[in-house]
């Protein structure tokens, strides 16, 4: 069994016949519809969101058919499937050997990670060539918006370029040092420079001796890890942060919530934001709930103290309910509906 089959078995097992394979396909492709989004959350597969765009529909369906022919999955209805016992067993065996990367979180990062990689790979290639005085090279990316971004952010002077190379080198080295040898090797293989063209995922997978679908997840996981570290600690990685600064727009949020998100980042209070945007405070609170739901790295500690969060979760567990009113009553109205909602959505 190859990794792709194991991956699909995992997803089908999570979904457990409650959604169609078409829904699963959209999820892996990263198609943003509210249904896909909710499904991802509901079945615990949102970390795979948009991470397998290279698998086209035909290949996807072929894999499903293969799994079906080998009785690893059982048809429940026209396009829903259940994973058979042997299917679960073989899938678990493969995933034990090749577990999903810890940092993989397609839902939170994939759309930004994609652009981040396009920019970084072209930037590094350009730096590497131009520092050797070679401006006559074919770029690894031809998209106008990517080339435009590089042009806008590329230093003109040689000493500035050297400084960029130096700093990017140090930042990347420090990030890769915290990853496994295989991951750092994979990432480095993929970069192009003056002396060498980068490898495709498929080629790099061959070099490190893993299945290319697994290498793909490994690679996406590295990007997600970098995105996460940049978000947590912008000051530590000032140069790499330049590549993601304007990508917040790609967070899975409504436009209005996005504005709120960016103002929260500037340490504005709910009241200030509401005043400034001429919106009700309750609207801003709704935004914050949306953000908490969709941005995993968003912390709610400034709205609900950690011990209060525990209290809410404890009561919810005791009462076996997620309904706000009984929880609020049990808390003797010490905390607001907003705070309770926030904790419950964050807990997911």
């Amino acid at each position: 069994m190859n990794y792709r089959e194991a991956l699909l078995l995992f997803c089908l097992n999570q979904i457990n016949g409650q959604r169609t394979i078409n829904g699963l396909y959209h999820l892996l492709q990263g198609k943003k519809s509210s249904q896909t989004i909710q499904d991802g959350k509901l079945f615990g597969v949102s970390f795979l969101f948009g991470t397998c765009k290279h698998i086209n529909r035909k290949e996807f369906l072929e894999t499903v058919t293969r799994l079906h022919n080998e009785r690893f999955i059982i048809k429940k209805s026209e396009d829903t499937f259940l994973v058979s016992e042997p299917g679960v067993k073989i899938m678990e065996g493969i995933l034990r050997k090749y577990p999903f990367p810890d940092h993989l979180d397609g839902w939170a990062y994939q759309s930004r990670a994609d652009l981040f990689w396009k920019r970084l790979s072209l930037y590094v290639q350009s730096l590497s060539h131009l520092l050797k005085g070679d401006s006559n090279f074919l770029p690894v990316n031809r998209e106008d918006n990517i080339q435009y971004w590089i042009k806008k952010n590329f230093p003109m002077e040689q000493n500035e370029r050297e400084a960029w190379a130096n700093n990017l080198y140090n930042e990347i080295l420090s990030l890769l040092n915290d990853l496994t040898e295989n991951e750092s090797t994979l990432f480095t293989y993929r970069l192009s420079g003056f002396h060498r063209v980068g490898l495709t995922i498929n080629q790099a997978a061959g070099r490190i001796g893993v299945d290319s679908d697994f290498a793909n997840l490994l690679f996406k996981g590295i990007l997600h890890y970098i995105m996460k570290r940049l978000q947590e600690n912008e000051q530590k990685y000032p140069f790499l942060s330049v590549f993601v600064k304007d990508l917040e727009v790609l967070l899975p949020l409504t436009d209005s919530a996005r504005k709120t998100f960016s103002m929260l980042g500037k340490n504005r209070t709910i009241k200030e934001i509401a005043g400034y945007r001429r919106l009700k405070e309750s609207t801003i609170e709704d935004h914050i709930v949306e953000i908490a739901m969709n941005v995993p790295e968003f912390t709610i500690d400034s709205f609900v103290a950690p011990f209060e969060q525990e209290e809410i979760l404890e009561i919810s567990k005791q009462l076996r309910t997620k309904r706000l009113k009984p929880i609020k009553t049990a808390l003797e109205d010490r905390l607001s509906y907003f705070q309770i909602r926030l904790v419950l959505v964050k807990e997911g």
């Binding site: 590094v124 730096l127 590497s128 520092l131 050797k132 190379a165 130096n166 990017l168 080198y169 990347i172 080295l173 890769l176 040092n177 040898e181 750092s184 090797t185 990432f187 480095t188 293989y189 970069l191 420079g193 003056f194 002396h195 060498r196 070099r207």
Partner: peptide
């Protein structure tokens, strides 16, 4: 043999010594 740290120094034209350091 492909050593990623060494490779990284070559991509960014850093001197080898720097690259070997942890």
């Amino acid at each position: 043999k492909f050593l990623w740290k060494k490779e990284l120094t070559r991509l960014f034209h850093q001197s080898e010594e720097v690259g070997i350091e942890e």
